[in-house]
């Protein structure tokens, strides 16, 4: 009874909050101050054709670094929780998993290279078309997921994934610090020249940072998936 009363009370409070938001809602006719600045100055200042990228990587670059850190901490936590208990015994994983179905195996051989290539395309072209490091890394990790499903007895080299992850993470921070000395501030992309607007080698450091983030996210999510399967 008391439980239901508190549930109803919580629902009522949420309803009041949403009523307040909904009754005062009116569609914006123009962008708010800082968004207006980004839309007007972003392309000429940073040279990225995809405006979202210039906001995510440069104007709000510190937030992206925070997101990468959160992902790193959660991957490290999963690694701590699911670490192998039987280090003293034979370290090779059990080889008695049932093989996957014919459909998954055929789809794996057809789709795996394409998914990887698409993921790389997404993060290399992040400053030109929708997408970026996180998206490309997640697509690569879903390709790795297909690999883990199709080959139940194979596993990834976790040491190599760990090395890729630490290399790209530290390179991201170092490149960001480079901006302190050579350009306007931390994670400023104008260390390299901006290039021609809309071409592949443009927008200064943004493609470099996105390639690093893509590698880091892809390696991290793949190692999380591997640990979940093999723990």
């Amino acid at each position: 009874m008391l439980k239901k009363f508190f549930a109803a009370l919580a629902l009522f409070i949420v309803a009041i909050m949403f009523y307040d938001i909904a009754s005062n809602y009116q569609e914006r006719q123009q962008l708010s101050g800082v968004a207006q600045y980004y839309v007007e100055k972003g392309p000429s200042e940073l040279g990225a054709a995809n405006l979202v990228t210039s906001v995510v990587v440069t104007y709000r670059g510190l937030d992206t670094l925070g997101e990468v850190t959160v992902l790193f901490i959660s991957a490290a936590g999963i690694g701590l929780l699911l670490r192998r208990q039987r280090d003293d015994k034979d370290p090779s994983p059990q080889k008695d998993n049932a093989p996957c179905s014919e459909i998954v195996d055929t789809a794996f051989h057809l789709l795996f290279p394409m998914i990887l290539l698409f993921g790389i395309y997404i993060f290399v072209n992040g400053h030109l078309t929708p997408g970026g490091g996180f998206q490309g890394g997640a697509v690569i990790a879903s390709g790795m997921m297909l690999y883990l499903l199709a080959k139940p007895n194979n596993t990834f080299n976790l040491q190599l994934l760990k090395k890729i992850e630490s290399f790209s993470g530290s390179a991201y921070v170092l490149i960001g610090a480079l901006g302190l000395f050579l350009a306007g501030g931390f994670l400023d992309n104008r260390v390299l020249s901006l290039g021609e607007f809309g071409s592949l080698f443009s927008a200064g450091l943004i493609p470099v940072i996105y390639v690093l983030i893509g590698l880091k996210v892809g390696a991290e999510l793949s190692s999380v998936l591997t640990k979940f399967r093999d723990s």
Partner: peptide, 19 residues
């Protein structure tokens, strides 16, 4: 918002389901 859609499709419906 195609940027968000990509992340949601890959992580929200792909990786989370498998995990």
């Amino acid at each position: 918002a195609p940027d968000v859609a990509m992340t949601e499709a890959a992580i929200g419906s792909g990786l989370t389901t498998l995990i």
